[in-house]
Design a protein around this nucleic acid. Structure first.
Lengths: 219, 219
DNA sequence: GCATATTTGTCCGTATGTATA
DNA sequence: CTATACATACGGACAAATATG
């Protein structure tokens, strides 16, 4: 039984599956992943799986310890603080200097509507996803491939943290209307006010995430 | 003759070598890298080399085309514009909000001295390296692991571009004294003026790089 | 503290599909 | 259009490091 007939994209395909498994909480933070076992479960070879591990390690979703294999990354307080500092640095100027008729503005609108619909269904995980999409669109306003790629990595780490915290209502719900308001200010060409609101959002969100995290660690 | 006795770090070690080969110009931009051939030359297995390729592709030094292998990335005008936009976004706030007695300030000083010494030797490549180290230290002022990692990736791309342009005197020499002045302003706790000077540097440098690039493409 | 089992790191050989001369 | 080269992926092997009893 020689090699499988599929010849392309197995690594990328597997990476997508693993990303979802991690962000979705199927793999708990800190859990070690055995090459041999996982390769067997996914029905791919160890060599292929190792390449997937390299990708996800680079993205910050896995951590690699020499001769000890890889484990799902565990978000720390320091990591969350750092992530919000970076988000402030990137998102606020992107929004402040945005052109109000940029294509990404439409993406922001779609995200707002999706968050609204999800909130009516009381599906807070979907609200969280839509919210991240909203912020990804803000970064896209800057038209910088490198910034966009960097934010994608950061967003993956945030999803990991949210998965650890659960996705309770008060972590995502308050921002549905705030996001809509930010978008309205932007299309009204009042970027300074939009940027101020975004900064307020980041401060509030950071505070909530940090306190939820503190509750979690005090077990 | 079974597996080689070395057991750790072969991938990282090889990645370092390849990075230097690329940044140093031993591998020309656009050149395709054959797995089998390179693996033979470096005396490592193809599987190991493929993992190195994943790393460097993620860093932007190589480009990967499905079923066509990897090639050394070729810097484009768009890439250089993007890099300088990102550098402005990251470096200027880092410096503006810096604590003048941060440990990274010492690194800045070392970089200034190294650049000075290299300039007296008229070794413009070494001047360029020291200059990048100076700016890496500026980013380190922000104390953000994610920002530092991101800048490392950007710096690798810049070295690639400089290698393509050659390292002529006028591309690096003017900044030795300017960097020293920026550092002096910072230790004098005049961050606003230091930040202004940094912004002026970035504008000048970007202009020179872009025009050198344009000369290169008009062949 | 030692012998042993497990797991990672690396190698090789080979099959298959895609691209190119 | 055929031949050839090459990238992609598989499986098996073994040495070294780590974990376990």
């Amino acid at each position: 039984m020689p090699a499988r007939p599929v010849t392309a994209g197995l690594v990328e395909h597997t990476a997508v599956s693993l990303r979802e498994a991690i962000a979705g909480g199927a793999l708990a933070p800190g859990q070690r992943l055995s090459e041999a076992k996982l390769a067997g479960e996914l029905d791919i070879s160890r060599n292929t799986l190792r390449e997937v591990f390299r990708l996800l390690t680079q993205e910050g979703l896995l951590r690699h310890e020499p001769n000890r294999g890889v484990a799902v990354a565990v978000p720390s307080m320091a990591a969350i603080l750092d992530i919000y500092r970076v988000r402030r640095l990137i998102e606020v100027p992107s929004l402040a200097q945005a052109w109000p008729r940029h294509a990404a503005v439409a993406r922001m609108g779609v995200a707002v509507e999706r968050a609204h619909a999800a909130a009516q269904d009381r599906d807070w995980r979907r609200v969280g996803s839509a919210n991240m999409e909203f912020h990804a669109a803000i970064v896209a306003l800057a038209d910088s491939p490198r910034l966009t790629g960097f934010f994608t990595r950061i967003a993956a780490e945030m999803r990991l943290a949210f998965g650890l915290l659960g996705s309770p209502e008060d972590l995502h719900a308050p921002y549905v209307d705030l996001n809509r308001e930010i978008l309205a200010r932007l299309v009204a060409e009042d970027q300074p006010e939009a940027a101020r609101m975004l900064e307020a959002y980041l401060t509030m969100s950071e505070r909530k995430v940090m306190s939820a995290f503190a509750r979690l660690e005090s077990d």
